[in-house]
Design a protein around this nucleic acid. Structure first.
Lengths: 144, 144
DNA sequence: ACATATAAAGACCCATTTGTCTTTTTATGA
DNA sequence: TCATAAAAAGACAAATGGGTCTTTATATGT
């Protein structure tokens, strides 16, 4: 499972993309309310994201968060990597650091493909592709 | 990812099954050493497992842990459920409590099958089936 | 019967994640 | 130009997961 921080990050980024698509740059307070996350904690998460240049921000009056068109699609993989590292894509379900094709743990053959599928999902889906699903009415991001 | 406690539990149970297959009942110290886990912490985990009757134990001289033949195969699902709950099998990747087929989050359709596959794995594989893989030389549980 | 080896129980501690509060910086609109 | 709205930064607090230590209960071999 992804950590709560990662989930907040993904929800926030998707919300920002949706707003950007309507020529708006949401601010922290608005984002936190919308994704149902504590405001101060959301601030921390946004700081991590901007520090790693996953999106842009401007301070001061009329400021807020946005994707500068320059950034290409932002994969979920990248977001997860920045928020919690990539161990959820790589580590052995048994917790064996030595687990490999040569020295497989008893779950290696069955769990491997699942991890693969998850990695593929994270690499192929982007904040933008998720936002599009919502815009096209194929998904919702309603928390209530 | 499974928690460290769950991983310790699975490793311990598989080791006990392997020893049982050779008519032995390993004790706490031996188990902890073998699975490379802190002894006192392993004790806590064993207490949880016995309290939930996932395996049996005897105190005193010559005591130790064992599966009374009565217990049928012990699924990984059951172990996970006892150790950390079942949210890793059920919860939404987006962290939306409302996520469902009717109100799908943007990852619902692609992540659902992955969760399904993981659940199936956990329900079908048992401590005994894992132990058998090791006995048949198709897997190892070596930590070094 | 008893000493002893062993599991069980409980109190405690540490690290990480999650979350809050206060202060500082900075861009911008009036 | 300058007051102010906003993000950035940093210190702190709470909750949880992981881990240790000490004491208690009990089964068993002698």
């Amino acid at each position: 499972m992804l950590t709560k921080s990662t989930q907040y990050a993904i929800r926030a980024l998707v919300y920002i993309q949706l707003q950007n698509d309507e020529q708006k740059r949401p601010g922290l307070a608005e984002i936190a309310t919308e994704i149902e996350a504590p405001e101060a904690y959301t601030a921390k998460i946004m700081q991590i994201l901007t520090k790693h240049k996953l999106l842009s921000s401007v301070k001061g009056r009329g400021g807020g968060f946005f994707f500068s068109g320059k950034e290409p699609g932002l994969s979920l993989y990248k977001v997860v990597e920045v928020m919690e590292g990539d161990s959820c894509f790589t580590s052995c379900a048994f917790g064996l650091s030595t687990c490999s094709n040569g020295k497989p743990c008893p779950l290696h053959d069955k769990y491997g493909p699942i991890k693969e599928a998850f990695l593929k999902l994270a690499q192929e889906e982007t904040i933008q592709s998720l936002a599009r699903k919502i815009e096209e009415g194929n998904a919702v991001i309603n928390l209530l």
